[in-house]
């Protein structure tokens, strides 16, 4: 049991109540299939990665790579009919084996989500204050309404919202995107979660606001020790904020390692192509389209899913399915020829 009762009065951003041994999030061989008109689609094909306590991990990939699905699966929030196998341990709990009530408690108090589009995430017909107070009180049912309001006000001030009482009376359509995303983050923080799962938290925002939101996330991680997972398709996000980087492609993890190392010396041709496709900071460092398309979830390539687009494809790649393996200390790659991957591609490094 967590000790919750001792801290009833409101205070500013307090350290998370969770904690304990083990990883913040451990996904092991997670497979997800969703039902569709033409049979079930495999969205995740055995995803394994770990987010340590107090770490910031970015899960990067193109749209459809499975990064958002991984995040939703971690809280069992996938649409009805989704089949999930493997093992997901979130803040010490076996998510797939948890009863509904326990799962609700985990979502309410210990692991929170931040969505891509803050206007879609906030209820358009309810005042911001009411939505945040509800959030605080699901996390801690013992909290009085007045104490919850106070906690919400402090948290809003903590994430940089000017005049919190006025904002709490507003409706979501009355505020700017940057403020809305801060409010969504505050809605998660009032629960004092141990883990914060962010699904493309800056995609809907303009560049200046993006930087501010990322700085806020970094600060929350440093000051409160919250473990943070950020799904993103934006390499700029990764470089400045994440300790470690997990690169996903077609429902699989293709490369993993410390952010700086992966970006300066990728060990998978997909990561390499991503970096080369982003020619310098002038164009924002976004993941540009690489020639071809990723395989659809309905296809089952016999070999490597990236083979068809790979600049250094080998015969063996089309017949043998590569598994992620350690190629350097702390580095994993799912390329059969990872060892052959040497120096930084010209112009692609940072």
């Amino acid at each position: 049991m967590k000790i919750r009762g001792a801290v009833k009065t409101a205070a500013t951003l307090r350290p998370p109540a969770g904690g304990g041994a083990g990883a913040a999030l451990a996904m092991r061989d997670v497979e997800v299939s969703l039902p569709s008109a033409r049979g079930s689609l495999r969205i995740l094909r055995g995803v394994t990665f770990t987010v340590g306590r107090g770490e910031v991990v970015a899960v990067a990939g193109e749209s459809g790579s499975g990064k958002s699905t991984s995040i939703l699966a971690a809280l069992r929030l996938l649409p009805p009919g989704a089949r999930v196998t493997g093992s997901i341990v979130l803040d010490g709990e076996d998510v797939l084996a948890m009863p509904r009530r326990g799962l609700r408690g985990l979502r309410a108090g210990r692991a929170r989500l931040v969505f891509q589009d803050p206007w879609r995430a906030l209820h358009p017909m309810k005042r911001i204050g009411a939505q945040l107070v509800e959030s605080a009180r699901t996390a801690d049912p013992g909290l009085s309404a007045a104490a919850a309001r106070e906690l919400v006000e402090h948290t809003l001030a903590g994430v940089g919202i000017p005049d919190p009482p006025a904002r709490m009376r507003s409706y979501p359509h009355e505020i700017s995107g940057g403020q809305a995303q801060r409010i969504v983050i505050a809605m998660a923080l009032v629960a004092r979660p141990a883990v914060l799962l962010c699904d493309e938290p800056t995609t809907a925002l303009d560049v200046t606001t993006q930087a501010q939101i990322l700085e806020l996330l970094r600060r929350l991680n440093r000051e409160l020790g919250i473990s943070i997972v950020i799904a993103t398709h934006d390499l700029d996000v990764i470089a400045d904020v994440a300790d470690r980087l997990v690169v996903m492609y077609a429902g699989e993890v293709v490369e993993e390692g410390p952010t700086a190392e992966v970006l300066s010396a990728p060990r998978h041709p997909y990561t390499w192509s991503l970096l080369r496709a982003a020619p310098g900071a002038a164009e924002g460092g976004r993941l540009r389209a690489i020639e071809g398309r990723p395989p659809s979830p309905a296809e089952e390539p016999a070999g490597c899913a990236f083979a068809a687009r790979c600049p250094s494809v080998h015969e063996i790649c089309t017949t043998t399915r590569p598994e992620p393996r350690h190629v350097l200390p702390g580095r994993a790659s799912a390329c059969l020829r990872a060892e052959g991957y040497g120096p930084v591609p010209a112009g692609g490094g940072r």
Partner: peptide
């Protein structure tokens, strides 16, 4: 199917 319902579920609302 709206985002705000997913938000509510992700908050652990009954």
């Amino acid at each position: 199917g709206e985002g705000y319902v997913l938000t509510a579920r992700s908050k652990g609302v009954a």
